[in-house]
């Protein structure tokens, strides 16, 4: 089990824009470098990318949630 951690504090988004599909759904295959979510911090959007490959298990933070640096955002099964 691997966790995707937030590199910065900010607001977490699981989709590119309201109404768009979520980046990953449980069961999706994830390759290293795949976008898992977005973090908005100080008017800048940062892509959160998977650092390992695996199967997507689920988000650990909600869409629109305020998160801090190092907080787990999603889980992957190797």
């Amino acid at each position: 089990m691997a966790q995707v951690l937030s590199p910065v504090p900010g607001t977490f988004y699981t989709q590119a824009a309201p109404g768009e599909p979520v980046f990953k759904k449980p069961g999706d295959l994830v390759a290293t470098g795949d976008i898992i979510g977005l973090i908005e911090v100080m008017k800048t959007f940062i892509e959160v990318k998977a650092e390992t490959s695996g199967t997507f298990k689920g988000y650990m933070a909600e869409d629109g949630a305020a998160i801090s640096a190092g907080e787990p955002l999603a889980e992957l099964e190797a």
Binding site: V8, P9, G10, V41, M42
Partner: peptide
């Protein structure tokens, strides 16, 4: 600015 100049000026509040 609250940015990391060593990491492409990634915003980093705290």
């Amino acid at each position: 600015n609250a940015e990391d100049p060593m990491m492409q000026f990634l915003p980093f509040p705290g």
